[in-house]
């Protein structure tokens, strides 16, 4: 059974043993309340009682709980993993959502009302009527430098982020640059330091004053936070060491894109770079289809 046939398999009807959208109503209400609070305090991590889900913690349970709490009739749900719609995890998310809710599973970003993603933001510019749900492995950006919870709480409350700045300074002193690839720390709405999840730096500017709502859910760590529409998201940077997105030497080998985040394809035997291809598979597909027309 390949991915394609999996996707084509008819979705079983939810049995009477399951509530709509898997979660009980009380849980969904709690999550929605947490979402409201998170939207009201951009970038602030709101605790919630993360439930056991039919997938392992650390596999997107936070994002999934958010999606299940929000999806209703007429919604279209897209799930992506590292940009791909057809990875096993994304496929299973989509199947579960299709089985448990009235939402329609889709892969076309433009058709989706809710996009749940792991470690990428679609290349397609999301609209105000769309919601992005990001799966969060580690919500606390200060955990790099401060393991004590009480301390990180204090630092957020007082906006005492100089240790984070020191971390970046140290990176420059030791490596000549800010050696942070993914999960680049950002300041949301001029106050909270936030982990944007391990999205590449390429995706960080997409969050700044974005027209759409971004919700971030950490199931294992039991935290929900949000970037409401039109909210500033500013990466930490020095005047002489600016935040920079990734650059690619070649266009996408499939669609020829020069304005998309690319994955490096390596020869498994030699370890040499074979080519670069789009990380966002739906976007790549769309471009190729349009080119053929």
């Amino acid at each position: 059974m390949n991915v394609r046939t999996l996707l084509d398999t008819p979705v079983p009807e939810p049995g009477p043993a399951y509530n709509y959208a898997f979660l009980d109503e009380g849980t969904k209400r709690e999550i929605r309340r947490a979402v409201l609070k998170a939207v009201a305090i951009p970038g602030h991590q709101v605790p919630f009682g993360s439930r056991e889900m039919p997938l392992g913690r650390g596999w997107g349970t936070g994002g999934l709980q958010l999606s299940l709490s929000l999806l209703g009739e007429g919604e279209c749900f897209k799930a992506i993993d590292q940009g791909a719609d057809d990875s096993v995890n994304a496929v299973n998310m989509r199947r579960l959502v299709a089985a448990m809710t009235d939402a329609e599973p889709v892969t076309d970003t433009r058709a989706a009302t809710l996009v749940q993603s792991r470690h990428r933001i679609p290349e397609e510019r999301l609209r105000p009527d769309q919601t992005l749900v990001l799966q969060v492995p580690a919500p606390e950006p200060l955990s790099w430098i401060e393991p004590r919870y009480a301390q990180t709480q204090r630092m957020h409350a007082e906006r005492d982020y100089s240790p984070m700045w020191l971390y970046l300074y140290e990176s420059i002193a030791r490596h000549g640059e800010i050696a942070v690839g993914a999960n680049y720390p950002v300041i949301v709405d001029g106050h909270y330091l936030m982990s944007p999840t391990p999205i590449p730096r390429w995706d960080v500017p997409k969050l700044d004053r974005a027209p759409f709502l971004t919700l971030l859910g950490a199931g294992r760590e039991k935290r929900i936070y949000a970037v409401p529409p039109h909210t500033s998201v500013v990466p930490l940077e020095f005047e002489d060491y600016r935040f920079q997105v990734e650059r690619f030497a070649q266009p996408c080998a499939r669609c020829g894109a020069t304005d998309a985040y690319l994955d490096e394809v390596l020869d498994p035997r030699s370890g040499e770079t074979v080519c670069f291809t789009c990380s966002d598979t739906a976007h790549c597909e769309l471009r190729r289809t349009e080119a053929q027309r």
Binding site: L166, Y169, I172
Partner: peptide, 16 residues
């Protein structure tokens, strides 16, 4: 340098 610079960073110096 980081030890000495920490106080400057805390005072919002943002030029390495």
């Amino acid at each position: 340098g980081g030890n000495v610079g920490e106080r400057l960073l805390a005072a919002d110096w943002r030029h390495v």
